[in-house]
């Protein structure tokens, strides 16, 4: 019964737990604001634990997907099918010496990896995982998600700038240029969805997709969003900021040890957040028959992550001026047309 409620009525379940805690707090005479704070801390811990575990899983998944696409196995020695490879990686990175060149801008150099990770994590605050399971059901959730996502790209640039290395600088500048141009079609594509759903609230957007997902109502927007989000997340074929063969390691060149790991975690957190946003906007979020909503949501975001990986390991890297031309001459006009047509159809 309890399990059934956990899976199929997660909103009631969460409210029930909160109610129990509140009653207990009232009984022992604790202020209601304190119990709310404890509640928030618990939720934050659960969310961060989920992100960390899933991101570790994603680093393993990336290796396996890349391996199998490239007719090899990927990690096989660490546990069955290399499943604990992320742990081995983490231990290795922990023992690495964090070095810095002389002349780095110390404060920015140190906080950039952390802030990038934080920026990527902020997106999860507005993502509805299941009915009633959203940290902050904001009315302007979509706007918040894009703001947080743009913030994390900013710290890629800051890290590249502060490293005092020419390759890092070039990588950071590329990241900034890409974010500036791809943020526009990304938001325009999402506004089409917002128009159809009648609000910027992500919960509202998911609820409006009962019966028909937005990928059918807004197919063009879905494709544009996919392309633009690849650029936003700095993933191949748009991984120009890192571009190993051109810029050595781009903005990451001078980072080592746990600082490097933070950037890496941030990148995968961003990837997972991008997949979650796409799922929320176009694939109906937690909507789906039979299976519990949370399972549907997890299945959908991991399918999306797989699609992102599939694209990365198939395509060559695009050149920066082609990237810009592709954005301003192709993606952006299409996004505008999509928005206009959507508006017209809604008005008529």
């Amino acid at each position: 019964m309890w399990l059934y409620q956990f899976f199929y009525q997660p909103g009631e379940w969460a409210r029930g737990i909160y109610q129990v805690m509140e009653n207990w707090a009232v009984r022992i005479g604790m202020g209601i604001q304190w119990i709310q704070l404890i509640d928030m801390i618990i939720v934050a811990i659960i969310l961060i634990a989920f992100i960390f575990l899933d991101v570790m899983f994603l680093t393993w998944l990336e290796r396996k997907v890349a391996g199998h696409i490239q007719v090899r196995h990927g990690p096989m020695r660490t546990g069955p099918h290399g499943i604990i490879q992320p742990v081995a990686d983490a231990i290795k990175l922990l023992f690495k010496e964090p070095m810095a060149l002389p002349g780095v801008d110390n404060l920015i150099y140190l906080i950039s990896p952390l802030m990038m990770f934080v920026g990527a994590m902020l997106i999860y605050i507005v993502i509805p995982f299941s009915p009633g399971w959203v940290v902050a059901p904001m009315d302007y959730g979509l706007l918040f998600a894009f703001a947080a996502s743009g913030l994390s790209s900013f710290f890629v640039m800051a890290g590249g700038w502060s490293s005092n290395n020419k390759w890092s600088l070039l990588g950071g500048m590329r990241a900034a240029a890409m974010t500036l141009s791809y943020e526009v079609p990304l938001i325009l594509a999402a506004i089409g969805v917002a128009l159809v759903s009648g609000g910027l609230s992500l919960v509202g957007i998911v609820e409006s997709q009962a019966g028909m997902w937005n990928i059918i109502r807004q197919p063009l927007a879905a494709v544009l969003f996919l392309v633009a989000s690849l650029a936003e997340m700095n993933r191949g074929p748009f991984d120009l900021a890192e571009a190993e063969q051109e810029l050595v390691a781009g903005y990451l060149t001078e980072y080592s040890g746990m600082r490097f790991a933070m950037y890496y975690l941030g990148e995968y957190t961003h990837l997972l957040a991008g997949a979650a946003l796409f799922t929320t906007l176009f694939l109906g979020g937690w909507q789906g028959p039979l299976l519990p909503p949370i399972l549907w949501f997890l299945i959908k975001i991991h399918v999306m992550v797989f699609v992102y990986m599939w694209i990365r390991w198939t395509y060559p890297r695009i050149r920066i001026d082609h990237l810009m031309a592709f954005n301003w001459k192709f993606v952006l006009p299409l996004a505008l047309i999509n928005l206009g047509v959507t508006g017209l159809v809604l008005v008529l």
């Binding site: 490239q70 007719v71 074929p237 571009a243 063969q245 390991w313 198939t314």
Partner: peptide
């Protein structure tokens, strides 16, 4: 060449 342009997969195919 593929590797240099970011198409990693082609490298493994040709080496196979």
């Amino acid at each position: 060449w593929g590797l240099d342009l970011g198409a990693w997969t082609i490298l493994l195919y040709t080496f196979r």
